[in-house]
Structure formats: C-alpha cells, structure tokens
Amino acid sequence: MSPKAAPTPENKAAVDKVSFYSAWCKRCGNCVAFCPRKALGHDEWGYPVLADPERCTTCGLCEMLCPDFALSVGEAPAQPGAAAVPKGSRVAPTTSPERLAPEPAPKENGHG
C-alpha cells in the first residue's frame, strides 16, 4: 500500500506537509531516523509515512537526507520538475542536524 494513495480527510494534512514518491523510495529509513521531531514512521511495508503531522515543522531535513529524492516537504509542486519554488514552501536551510538530530532510535522497523 502506498502512503500516497487516496488521501482521506484524516491524512490530508500529511499529504500537504510531506509528499512521498514511493516509486523512487528504497525504504532506507534515513527520513524516519533523522526526523528531529520524530514525526515520521513506517507503514507496514517499510515505506515512510507522516505518522504525526502535528509534530512536523516542515524543517526539510528529511528531504535533504533522503538519498533518493523520494520525498518532498512543503506543498507538493504541481509536477516534479517545475522549476519555480512554490509559494508557501517552508524550508529552513540553516537547520542544523547536529542540533536537532535525535539519539539513535531503536530499530523497530529494521532499516538498513
């Protein structure tokens, strides 16, 4: 099951904050492990989902640490490849992973 399939009212906020492109995702777990707010989790297949949208500050770190360009923070661009920066996207380039990164989480989902 792809996390992007059929947005329901419950996960609409999640889709708005982080877009996942499962075709490119290799389920490495970087985004989940390094989310400073632990807002991301895994679905039953190991794909990332925005488990707790309330905690997500759209800091953009998961996007930067994703080696596969498989997720996008902020409003999803109309189409991948659109050159313009969509209005309202919030990315904090000064976010320091050293400052924000959590201690290693137990490997619940067996990543890596």
């Binding site: 490119w24 996007e63 596969d68 360009f69 991948p80 659109a82 920066v85 990315v91 380039p93």
Partner: peptide, 19 residues
Amino acid sequence: PPVHRSVVYGWLRHDKKFP
C-alpha cells in the same frame, strides 16, 4: 533563499531512469 525540492528536480535529468 530556501531551495525547494522542485528546484532540485529541475536539475535532475528527466529522461534518465530513477531510482
């Protein structure tokens, strides 16, 4: 200015297979 992923996508080759 912040760099949105869509800008990054703009620098990727669209005729190249991903992942």
